[in-house]
Each structure stands twice: as structure tokens, then as C-alpha cells.
Design a protein around this nucleic acid. Structure first.
Lengths: 229, 229
DNA sequence: TCAAAAGTGTTCTTATTACACCCATGG
DNA sequence: CCATGGGTGTAATAAGAACACTTTTGA
């Protein structure tokens, strides 16, 4: 074994692709960097991992500092470690994505200071570091994940219409879905509670509101049920 | 920003779950550790990543040093970074898995020195560090991957029988498949070349030998074909 | 009364499952 | 001639895709 000290000269960060859904569009929360390197460029929120901190904790910390949110859906995607990816030294980053309800998100002091803002996925600008690659990988993962697990609901307010749900899936899957087939399938899973309420103040026939039944899902899942869109 | 120097005190490694298929069984290549920590325990092959080395290169290096093999299927799975996972300091590891043809694998000097040997997946012993978790995650990823991409062939010799192929899928998916349905499906994809050869010296009707047609797959894939088992 | 989105069933096509017997070879 | 695994087709069922009109509301 070579001298171990030679290896203990690296750092690692977490970067978090925070997805939200608003106005029928899938969005990602970016910050404008206030310091070198890549000063003034848009970047994914991220930070160094502390010595005694687990990776998942670090990702949660980054998320909470920026959005004030805790206990939201968070998943590690993979590590990015090109040796030249960071100009300051050897820094690998662990990429996470999280899903938040944009209605819960309040711009707080930290996020104002760091100029955070939402960007539609298809029009994301050039980002600092290798963050465009990271975003692409996380979006791809989300796309796959959303077909096999009911995580789409994490992006919607507690009460939503079937059309909103359909538009959400269309944004994530980047495809169009048939209204009748979508409703048939999603309702046949029995995971939605019909709240017997309707929208108010819309200039068309008001839609019914639904709620995702998490307990029912856990119960069905334990029995081997498979959410498959 | 805090003093950056505080963060540049970490190390990272790659660990590689090397899968092989032999005697109808899915196997993983483990090494017996020759030094502390976890001396004499079985572990995944892995090593520190050098300062100027990309992660994928490091994983390939670990693989080549142990098996002599290059240009084999290799995929990053995720990072493991519990802060207490390594007794020597803060070391996160990036987990990879690779698929090799066990017939190509020759025990070389390095692997003898490190006491490498193949273990059937269902009977893997307790491993050093968090390597059992890593193995589980990589096996899970392989299970998912193999359904959507024709990577199973990476584990078989160039000429194989349909029964061997079926047993491979059964080992990976941990399930039993219907012989007729499996054959119908796999042959209907037109990805196998019937070599018009048969097994020799077997005490039963000899089976036909097939070959995977990689060019045809690339071609179909480019046109939007979807391998789906 | 118009515009805008909500809501609703049936048919056709395709994929999946279940299932049992004869064949070729070596010992 | 026996044991062993190789090889083959059809019918029933389930899942997915395609498709058009009526309803309710606010402006």
C-alpha cells in the first residue's frame, strides 16, 4: 500500500437538482453564483460535505438552507468525478435530486442572497462546472423513476385535478398522453381519493379535486402491488 | 465561504462488483483482504482513486489489475459515503459493477496474491466495510438494467445455447421463466444469429448454438427499437 | 351564446400467459 | 433402452391504443 496521506487531499460536494412543477411546467431551482469560480453563472445548489456528515444529510442540508423545506423526496443519482471538473482541486460531487411542492417554497433570506430562481427544464441556460450533465442525469433518473413509483405526487399540491396530474406526467415524460386512457389507468389503481370538491372561479366546467392516498399505497405496495404507468 | 483547506482532507475509492456467470450460477469476484482494516475478510476489489484519475478510469484500472480484462461492460451505480464507513478517515467510495465472461478470466499473479475467488450471489459471506450494501445495490441495478438492455450477453461466451441464456436471466432476475415463451420472445427480436452448429459430447439431444449480433442491435437501437424482456 | 376545459365507453390490436409432448444423443 | 435436456404451437386472457361527443362554468 502506498502512503495513505497522498490520498487524503480531496474534497467532495453534493449538488441538488430541485424539481418543482408550476404553471403546467417542470422546473428546476438554480442559483446565481456569487463567487469564483464561475462567478455570476447559474449553477445547481450544492456545497461541500463536512467531515462527519453523511452524504444524504449534506444533500438535505443544502435543500433546507435554500428552501426551508425538510422531509421531502430526495434521491442520490450518482457521483461525478472527472479529474478536471473543479478548478480549485480534486472535488468530486454526489448528485441528488429532490421533488418539492412549489407552493410550499418560500423565498427566504438565504435564497434571496443567492439569487435563486426557477427555470423551465427545456430552457435551462449554460451552467457552472459540469452541472448541465448532472441535470441531464437527474432528469433522466426522474423520468425512469416516475413510471414505477408514485413519486409524481410529491410535486403537486395536496389537492389536484386529474388534468394537472396528467400535465405533470407529460412534462416529465416529455410526451403526450391520451386523456381517457390516463384517467382510466390512474383511477383503476385506487390510489386517489375523490375529495368531492371542485375548482372554483375557473371560466369553464370546474374539475374535481383529488388527493393521493399514501397510506393506501404503502399498504398495497407491501402486498406486492406495482405502480406502473 | 469557510476556509476551503478544511474540506480537502478526504479520500475516495472505487469498489467494483464483478459479475460472472458459470455453471448456471451468477457469481461475484471477491478478494480476501491481506491487510488492516478488516484483515482476512472477503471484500469487493477496490482501490483509492489517484488525484488525476477519472472515476471510470479508476474502476477500469481496478478491474484490469485483478482480471487482466479491458473494454468490458462497466457501469457506475452510486456513491456510498456514511461518515463512519472507513476506520482510517473520511473515505467515500464510488460503486461500479462490471460484467465479464468468466471463460476469459485467467487467474493472474495479482489475483493469486490477493486470493481472489468467485462466490455465488446467494451465498456471499459477510464482507468488509459496507460492501454487502454495495453488492446489494449493484445487484439490484443489474436486475433492472438487464430487462431493458441486452447486456446479459456480456456474461456469456460468444457461442451459447438458448437454455444457457434462459438460465442466466433466471439467475439475475431470481425467477423462473417459461421455456417456450422465453424462446419465442428472444428469437422474435432478431438479435441472435443461429450459428447452425450444435453442442458436442452431451448426453442428450445437442442444443443449437447462437451468437449475439451486436451490430444488428446498434442498428435497431438507433431506429428506436427497445429491448424489453 | 361563446370559449374553454371537464368528463366519459367502446372497439381493435397487441402482448402475455399457460400448458404437454416428441426428439436426439451418450451411456 | 433409459435418462437427460432440446425443441416446438395454440388458445385464452389481459393490457394498451385509438378515438368524439356532451357537460359545466364564467365572461
Amino acid at each position: 500500500m502506498e502512503n495513505l496521506d497522498n490520498f487524503f487531499k480531496c474534497a467532495f460536494t453534493v449538488d441538488n437538482v430541485i424539481f418543482g412543477f408550476d404553471e403546467g411546467d417542470l422546473k428546476v431551482l438554480l442559483i446565481k453564483r456569487g463567487e469564483a469560480p464561475y462567478e455570476d453563472m447559474w449553477a445547481l445548489p450544492g456545497y461541500f460535505v463536512y467531515q462527519t456528515e453523511d452524504l444524504d444529510s449534506a444533500a438535505n442540508r443544502v435543500l433546507a438552507e435554500l428552501t426551508g423545506l425538510r422531509n421531502v423526496y430526495l434521491e442520490q443519482v450518482k457521483a461525478f468525478g472527472r479529474s478536471d471538473r473543479h478548478p480549485v482541486g480534486r472535488v468530486i460531487t454526489i448528485a441528488y435530486y429532490s421533488l418539492i411542492k412549489i407552493s410550499d417554497y418560500k423565498i427566504n433570506a438565504a435564497s434571496i442572497a443567492r439569487k435563486a430562481s426557477w427555470h423551465s427544464i427545456p430552457t435551462v441556460p449554460e451552467l457552472a462546472f459540469d452541472h448541465n450533465d448532472i441535470l441531464t442525469a437527474c432528469f433522466k433518473r426522474l423520468k425512469r423513476r416516475v413510471r414505477g413509483r408514485p413519486i409524481g405526487f410529491e410535486l403537486l399540491p395536496p389537492k389536484f385535478t386529474l388534468t394537472e396530474l396528467q400535465h405533470l406526467y407529460e412534462s416529465i415524460l416529455e410526451t403526450e398522453l391520451d386523456k381517457r386512457n390516463f384517467r382510466k389507468k390512474i383511477l383503476s389503481m385506487n390510489l386517489l381519493v375523490d375529495l368531492e370538491e371542485t375548482q372554483e372561479g375557473v371560466a369553464h366546467r370546474p374539475a374535481r379535486l383529488y388527493q393521493f392516498d399514501r397510506d393506501k399505497y404503502e399498504h398495497l405496495f407491501a402486498k406486492g402491488f406495482n405502480f406502473e404507468l
